[in-house]
Design a protein around this nucleic acid. Structure first.
Lengths: 343, 343
DNA sequence: TTGAAAGCGGTACCAA
DNA sequence: TTGGTACCGCTTTCAA
């Protein structure tokens, strides 16, 4: 069906080698031959067989991306950034979602290794480094995206999550919150760092760190917003209810918001709230949600650039870290001092 | 680095053919030889080279999916459904986004053809069938997802969009709207069908179809919510402002909502509003948004199943259409008769 | 039950 | 400047 080098060579009375060289712009081909070959290539709409190329060069021209959840707008935006860069460079993108399940993630990584993708990008939900050792053992390369892992020196592109935590927390304090709670995420680096940032901000403000105000997502099988809802309910049962809440991410904040409004309380007057990730629709929520922006698309783009550079390097370069500086995006849900703006 | 059939064969003193047969469960291998081979495969953690397999079998075990926008929750959910089915069947998923740009979509389709993916799934933003003729010309197969195309008999999985339009419109009428407007989408089948459903519902209710109440997304380079915002503004400048609006999709409805609230009007008391697609966070919006659910994940799963069956068929089977029946999901933004529920 | 040989569609090396 | 030959790792065919 499809034309092959052989066909072109036969038609023109030259060898396949000659045709192959024209395709790859070798210098040692006469202008005339080159013309004839190109013409025929055009006529037959010749496309090289990628499997044959991959077999001999060892390069699939395919990059793998594993995310915890494609439907979460944050990761969708990361994927968009990745996709843009790969398109520019002529690489294909194989995506898979781990559904926030470490075991499933391990399977997916294994699958991608089996497929011999050129390089992997992983926003991991794992705590152990087993999978990553496997990748290294196979002589392949990878980039950790968004979430770092302890105990392994790896290429990493993410956010300064300690800054995320402290920006958010300080902002609540500046807006008059005296009892700032934290709805934390699971056992991943972003969650731990944001928690640390939260603690740091309280300390710098000379405020006590009250452990009863730190709730971690225990209902871990639920979607983030459901987790946020339940966690917030717990906080509302405390003797001394918090007057500000920093949530691990925006979906959790949405759940928390629901819990607060259901309880008949006002946001931000009774309880101020802020999330992280700055999902697109944050300003369209029940109460426009303050958040910490992580420039997720750039994060994806940078990850892709790093991944490609890794791939092209002869020797594996020393692991590199790229941190994106987060930015506060205050909206109505946390603004208590100043008059509430219309956005 | 990686083990090859040859290595196993050498180690065991058998031929590569024998090993290959064991891998593919051929019957004509003695139990003993099979054992030995399997043992060695295990020990070496042998994985067949997919490029070599693809070269000889012509199958990449890779499926392509082109969506207009990964960040749009609707398509993210479709992708999730697709991904689930492909994972079960051991296929990989190559995703690309056309960013709602027909030219970019054409490029992406071309890329996927060049990569010789086994089958393509496309949620197209094109009006012309050129790309699809190209696919057919190359003897490859594809499934249209969500959006149909005129002038081509193709496999298609989507929603009964006429029903979407009439469900939404009838619902507004039942809730006391007398002047129901429509914020339409672009020139794609879903938009045209929903418009038709809108008209049909008005007619069945014995209401006039006022063309000035039908606004189409003209600001076509903007994101859907921005389009919705501007389109709604236009409607608000009418002499007779509508009291109900059916929006092509949820993002547009979110923009419309903003415009209405900015104008100091109330939802649903002054203007009721309903979208389509039922994005996850619809109930967390400024006013919980009524929508028409399309079961997007199932839509994706069905598309994937159809695509795989297509691929496996010796002869291209006659084009098939799978329509998902939409379901009304009323929320506060459109409920005017009954007391407003807490959800 | 086993395996030698041919071939899938390219690329690399080196001789002509 | 051109091309013969070997080879990438696997499957298929057919003879032993």
């Amino acid at each position: 069906m499809a034309a092959r080098l052989k066909d072109i060579a036969r038609d023109l009375g030259v060898s396949v080698v000659t045709v192959s060289k024209v395709l790859r712009n070798h210098e040692d081909i006469s202008a005339e031959t080159r013309e004839r070959v190109l013409k025929r290539i055009e006529e037959l709409n010749y496309q090289p067989n990628p499997a044959a190329q991959a077999l001999v060069t060892g390069k699939m021209h395919l990059v793998g991306l594993v995310v915890p959840d494609l439907v979460h707008a944050f990761f969708a935006q990361v994927a968009k950034g990745v996709s843009r860069i790969l398109r520019e460079k002529g690489y294909g993108l194989v995506i898979s979602s781990s559904e926030e399940d470490p075991e499933l993630e391990r399977q997916e990584i294994r699958q991608m290794l089996v497929r011999r993708l050129d390089v992997l990008m992983i926003a991991s939900t794992q705590w152990t480094v087993e999978s990553f050792r496997d990748i290294e053992k196979q002589g392949r390369r990878y980039v950790l995206v968004d979430r770092r892992l302890l105990g392994i020196a790896a290429n990493y592109v993410g956010t300064d999550d300690i800054a995320v935590g402290s920006l958010a927390t300080s902002h609540l304090i500046e807006n008059g919150c005296r009892r700032v709670a934290h709805l934390g995420g699971r056992n991943v680096s972003t969650a731990l760092d944001r928690l640390q940032g939260y603690r740091g901000a309280l300390l710098s403000a000379g405020m006590p760190v009250d452990e009863s105000l730190v709730v971690s997502g225990s209902h871990s099988d639920d979607a983030a917003d459901v987790t946020g809802y339940h966690a917030m309910k717990e906080l509302l049962h405390l003797k001394e209810v918090p007057d500000g809440v920093f949530c691990y991410n925006d979906p959790m904040a949405m759940g928390a918001m629901r819990a607060i409004l259901d309880a008949g309380l006002r946001i931000p007057e009774d309880i101020a709230i802020i999330g992280a990730g700055n999902v697109q629709y944050a300003s369209d929520l029940r109460v426009p949600l303050s958040s910490v922006d992580q420039d997720s698309e750039t994060l994806g783009a940078n990850s892709a650039r790093l991944a490609l550079s890794l791939m092209e390097a002869k020797q594996p370069p020393p692991p590199q870290e790229i941190l994106i500086r987060p930015k506060l995006v205050p909206r109505q849900s946390s603004l208590r001092n100043r008059p509430v703006s219309s956005i």
